[in-house]
Simulated assay, not measured.
Amino acid sequence: MRNLIQRVLVLTGLVDRLQPVALLALRLYVSSVFFRAGIIKISDWGATLALFHDEYKVPLLPPDVAACVGAFGELAFPVLITLGLMGRFGAAGLFVVNAMAVISYPQLWGFDCPAGIHMHFVWGAILLLLAIFGPGRLSLDELILKRLGLRPAPAA
């Protein structure tokens, strides 16, 4: 039995080595989704403003301000996440942008095909995971911490 447990531990140790690559893949995927949405917003600013005035119901913000904040969030936070620079901050910020998208577009909940709302939940889960665990070892955060000698000790 002990031998079997040791073999399983070796195997899980090998799988653990994939964690930085998996976190990088998640960062690149979720960043690309939101960055492309931001590019679309700024490519036709008139249509974006019309959507924020007519379709999206962002709470507390005037439509023009909400459009600017939304476009900024979809363009700036993905860059931080992709680079792994202030990765947790970028992931948390994009999580808020994603939540605002779900809250401010109530039609998303009523479509016959629930894939739209489900994808927002998937993106939200990925962003929450990145905010909690950080961008991983393949990030500028890690490089900077190592250079400064501030790399936190591994959790027990």
Rank of each mutant, 00 (worst) to 15 (best):
78 P>E: 01
42 I>K: 03
100 M>I: 13
71 A>P: 04
57 K>T: 14
104 S>A: 10
67 A>H: 04
44 D>V: 06
92 A>C: 04
101 A>P: 00
52 F>T: 10
71 A>S: 12
60 L>Y: 14
38 G>L: 07
96 V>W: 02
58 V>C: 08
83 L>K: 07
97 V>Y: 05
42 I>E: 07
59 P>R: 09
65 V>M: 12
96 V>D: 02
57 K>S: 10
61 L>W: 02
98 N>K: 01
69 V>Y: 00
82 T>K: 06
63 P>L: 10
98 N>M: 03
86 M>V: 15
93 G>A: 02
56 Y>N: 05
37 A>D: 13
50 A>I: 13
43 S>T: 09
82 T>N: 04
64 D>Y: 03
61 L>D: 09
57 K>G: 13
45 W>R: 11
51 L>C: 14
66 A>Y: 07
104 S>R: 03
78 P>C: 02
47 A>H: 09
85 L>H: 05
104 S>L: 02
90 G>N: 02
89 F>R: 10
50 A>Q: 15
87 G>Q: 04
53 H>C: 11
39 I>K: 09
65 V>W: 09
82 T>Q: 02
56 Y>Q: 09
44 D>I: 08
84 G>M: 01
55 E>P: 09
86 M>Y: 15
38 G>V: 07
71 A>I: 08
81 I>E: 00
70 G>M: 09
68 C>M: 13
63 P>Y: 08
88 R>P: 07
58 V>P: 10
87 G>F: 03
71 A>V: 07
42 I>R: 02
43 S>V: 08
93 G>C: 02
84 G>K: 00
72 F>D: 01
104 S>Q: 01
64 D>A: 15
90 G>I: 00
52 F>C: 08
85 L>P: 10
100 M>T: 12
65 V>P: 00
85 L>A: 10
50 A>N: 15
48 T>C: 11
67 A>L: 01
80 L>Q: 06
72 F>P: 00
37 A>K: 08
70 G>I: 03
69 V>S: 08
69 V>C: 05
99 A>L: 08
54 D>I: 04
95 F>T: 11
39 I>G: 08
67 A>D: 04
81 I>V: 06
71 A>D: 03
45 W>S: 14
54 D>K: 13
45 W>F: 15
105 Y>V: 15
76 A>W: 15
87 G>D: 06
103 I>R: 12
55 E>T: 15
73 G>P: 04
70 G>C: 04
44 D>A: 14
102 V>S: 14
69 V>N: 02
49 L>Q: 09
60 L>T: 15
61 L>F: 11
103 I>L: 11
57 K>N: 13
